[in-house]
Amino acid sequence: MLTKGLNLLKSTLVPHISKQQALRTMFTHHATMLQHQRQFQPLFFSASLHRSFSSAANQPLQVKVTRNPIATDLQALESTLPTTATKQPELFFPQVLKDAQEPNPTWKARKLNVSYSVYKLNAAAHFVRGKHIYDALTLINNVAKKGGPLIKSVLMAAKVNGVKQGFAEERMWVKEVVLGKKLGPKKIDIKARGKFGMMHAPVSHITVVLEQKSAADFYKMVVSGKTPATVGHVFRKMLYQNDADFERVKALSHMTTSQGRYYRRTQFKRMVQLIQKEYQTQGVQMKTSKIERNVLEKAAAEFLDLRKRNDEGRMLTNRTSRLAHFEKNYKKK
């Protein structure tokens, strides 16, 4: 009975408890229960019925009264058991968090105290938010509003600032266009029937923030068929200037032509759908966005690895050629 109770107690407690602590806890709990029972039933009765088959009705019950010896045994047990300090279990958390990706570099340009409504400026700024710098300039040229030239001037200033800082134009994107307003000068608001009032002329501020996309982000856009149209035009010019052959032009058609970009987007969606069906056959429900993210992350990692190996090989080749040139022209004095 003691072994059974000890096993039950150890199964309900924490794994690091010892056998001595389990014994002490079990006997202490049992003694507490006995103290509560003594208030109402101080004695334990063990009745043994001795009856014979011949005179079962005439013989009385024989009751044997014994006192519980556990109260005295607990004191002896406490004195014999050594004292052990309770130790809390330790928790270990594995380091699963990856290093946070460094944010893309950003820079900005501002234009203050523009005599134009912030609401009308927002209608023009809507065309350039999140666009490539070439696409943004192309779109803003076709805005036949006063806000178009204002936004364009700030875009050009931000582009010049980025070039001065050493960033490439081909990887510039409009991260955000922030428009603010302030309380302008008072003007007379002419009303009907010879009445007039006061109004504040609208004054706004324009802030354009550009960012340089990383090589991995740009490659993800190329793989998913979201290459900016103006960037494709730049690549097409480069192929024309370098007299590229047909195979090279065909390999880059997913960037240089609108039909190629549409075909790449369609093929990417079909590939994601096929992967999703494979997961469904295995009984796993996977979201399309998660599959796209995993595919693009894998493709970007392979691209960066290949780019790193090519750079290392090119560096080694240049170093070898320089060393050969030095040994050829070096003369010992």
Rank of each mutant, 00 (worst) to 15 (best):
N329Y: 11
G197S: 13
D243T: 04
R248I: 06
L306T: 07
V154D: 00
Y116M: 11
P149A: 10
R314I: 12
V209A: 03
Q241D: 15
S204G: 06
Q101M: 06
R51F: 11
L323E: 14
K186W: 01
V272C: 10
H29S: 13
K226C: 10
T12Y: 04
F53A: 03
Y134G: 14
E297S: 06
A144E: 10
M255G: 00
F93S: 00
P94N: 01
R319S: 12
S11C: 06
M271C: 04
S54H: 09
K152A: 13
Y330Q: 09
S55Q: 11
H30Y: 09
L43N: 05
N122H: 02
S115P: 06
S79W: 02
A300Y: 05
A300N: 03
T266Y: 05
V118W: 02
T28D: 01
G260P: 03
D243F: 06
Q259R: 07
T84G: 01
A47E: 12
T227W: 04
T72W: 04
L43Y: 09
F167W: 12
K152I: 08
V118E: 10
L183D: 11
L34H: 10
T84W: 01
L179R: 05
Y119C: 07
H200S: 09
L74K: 03
L252T: 13
L13W: 10
A157M: 10
Q259I: 10
Q59S: 14
V163S: 09
H29Y: 12
Q212L: 07
L155R: 02
L296E: 08
M221Y: 04
R261W: 00
H254P: 01
L304S: 05
K120W: 04
H233R: 13
L97V: 01
N113Y: 06
V163P: 00
N161K: 11
Q95V: 00
F246D: 09
V178I: 13
T256A: 06
K269M: 12
V143M: 03
T257K: 05
K19P: 01
A300W: 00
V154M: 10
K191T: 06
H16F: 06
R129I: 15
L23V: 08
L252I: 15
V14F: 00
K175A: 15
K195D: 13
V118R: 04
A216R: 00
R307Y: 09
M156L: 12
D135C: 11
N104V: 08
R67I: 11
